[in-house]
Design a protein around this nucleic acid. Structure first.
Lengths: 342, 342
DNA sequence: CTGAAAGCGCTTACAG
DNA sequence: CTGAAAGCGCTTACAG
């Protein structure tokens, strides 16, 4: 690899001058500049980012840390793409840490990213009191939270209106005549979960439907929980006619159970998933879903983070994006249902 | 953030000594060591990886570059997890570049990762003559290729027996009585595609079935191509009774078309996907698939890369993992098919 | 407009 | 067993 010194030698100037033309800073004599540019080209030189970051301690280092709970979840893949695209347009690189819902791993990643001297973090906190995240904030890092906020902390947050999202979905189900509506939620210690439950409850109350706690199921936020909880629901003596699943993984798990048990969607049971998937149409039947754009969330978060890095005094903002109910074919009017679950 | 100097001051030793205990190198007096360890703890110190990497030019830097063509494809998500797990067990961090089948972006990522001073790369080359990858090899970087090899280059490769994978799948379809078997493949400039086509052809030939080139469809490797090519196939005057789709995205796209057009799987058409998905059971019907473990591929590649970093003189190896045909419910014996596609 | 020099946080040969 | 010093590749205040 070539370096500043080699470029400087070839161009017969000092390394300081080379650095100036690279960073497009100060005035450089056009002739000198041309010589330097020429040398850079000849040597196929690009600056060493490691040295730049070390040198620039406490200034712009062009590196973001992105810390995510579960990259198996397609929602977070979209977030990654959104962050990455915006970052690269602005000459930032992104280091990703996927902690798989494991707090120890989260801590490890956060440490590594700090020791990589990132400019700031985009994170989905484990829960509202995530102390690992609070630690990096008190270390002085710029942090933008996505998907979930952080209680008692001043941070930028980019998320979706979860309550309204489930509210709309449940109202839709009610409009179809459903009353026994189940809700399979994610981990109860994740703020998002609460907001979604709250939307569920509000819609039920608004329409005067009594809430049956046996129909609100929660365990973990993963595929296996979806399988298991859906099973419990279908085994109820008085099973639901519709279900709202709290994330992609839970949806997929629930779908497996429904199919395995030989139930038909939407004849036996209607289902709406929170989170749309780009292949929701590949499902049979196509899934009705509450769409939240991971891509937009990621992009917005990256934008916010870069703004705050430039201007740390900026007031905190709380960006709430809208969800969209995408009606496809996994829900049916209860009066049109032929078979009744026994 | 604390640094060596602060630790040294607190422990009342030189920074050299602190460095020695951190790296567990040379002999350090047990008492001194205890003092240092104590100071490290008190200050919650961990070393600055940026400084370490810069200092260790041309030695171990504990950073891997992982460059992938398409992180939307769940197969590559599994690869990421496999690489990451192995890397972290060995105290390596991973920087990921997702180039989305775009050669310019691939080049950019490769440059960034080089300028981040990675120890080596794990890459899925764009095609067999990928000149960006060849460049980094000639720059002296250690490279392990996954999924696809690199022609005319000495690199470690970890992949799957693609030919045998499709061969087994096609034989299975033939054993079910199918003769009009279509194959939707990925981009023709990806080596994997050729190997899979070759397995298809061998199986057909072995069983004396004439190959109909109209049934081998190829465009890009993405979801949209799956939708489109499946459509063309079903619109044929003499459509296939079975189809093998060349990757996850193509499978999902094909599924959408089949469902949209109102065809039934497996009554109207049988389908096998190359690449299993953890939620293949959520599909209706559950998808029969050729499983290649992205996780194992990633893990193995990381292992190989670390070995080669330790010992660059090591002979190149070509690791070919097996595929497994997972029979679920998306294929049917042709004699048992009730409806005939007109 | 340009260069010499300091320094970012480390590791390691060298000296004692 | 331990410390002083050089140096990794940069950027930038300082001097001219």
């Amino acid at each position: 690899m070539s370096n500043l010194k080699k470029v400087a030698e070839l161009a017969q100037v000092s390394i300081a001058t080379v650095s100036r033309v690279i960073n497009n800073v100060d005035n450089v004599n056009p002739n000198t500049k041309a010589k330097v540019l020429n040398a850079i080209k000849k040597l196929d030189y690009y600056p060493n980012r490691v040295a730049q970051r070390l040198r620039n301690s406490s200034r712009k280092k062009n590196l973001l840390g992105l810390v995510l709970p579960d990259i198996q979840n397609p929602f977070y893949v979209d977030v990654v793409i959104g962050v990455e695209e915006f970052a690269y347009e602005n000459n930032f690189a992104v280091m990703i840490g996927n902690f798989g819902q494991d707090q120890k791993k989260e801590k490890l990643y956060l440490e590594i990213l700090q020791s990589e001297e990132v400019d700031g973090f985009i994170v989905a906190p484990f829960h509202g009191h995530d102390k690992n995240i609070k630690q990096i904030i008190s270390n002085g890092y710029t942090v933008v939270c996505i998907d979930r906020g952080l209680l008692d902390s001043n941070v930028d947050v980019v998320k979706v209106d979860n309550e309204n999202g489930t509210f709309k979905a449940i109202e839709y189900l009610i409009s179809l005549g459903h009353k026994k509506i189940a809700h399979i939620t994610g981990r109860l210690d994740i703020p998002t979960t609460f907001e979604r439950i709250s939307g569920y409850e509000k819609a039920m109350k608004k329409h005067g439907i009594k809430i049956d706690n046996k129909l609100i199921k929660s365990k973990k936020s993963d595929y296996a929980s979806g399988v298991e909880l859906m099973c419990e629901l279908l085994d109820l003596s008085n099973p639901p006619t519709a279900v709202l699943t709290g994330n992609n993984l839970l949806t997929l798990g629930a779908l497996e159970t429904i199919h395995t048990k030989g139930y038909n969607i939407p004849d036996d049971i209607s289902i709406i998933g929170f989170d749309d998937m780009y292949w929701a149409n590949s499902l049979n039947p196509p899934l009705t879903a509450i769409r939240q754009s991971g891509y937009d969330i990621g992009k917005r978060a990256a934008e916010l983070l870069l703004q705050r890095i430039q201007d740390p005094t900026r007031a905190n903002s709380n960006v709430i994006l809208n969800t969209e109910l995408i009606i496809r074919k996994s829900c049916k009017d209860i009066n049109a249902i032929k078979r009744i679950i026994v």
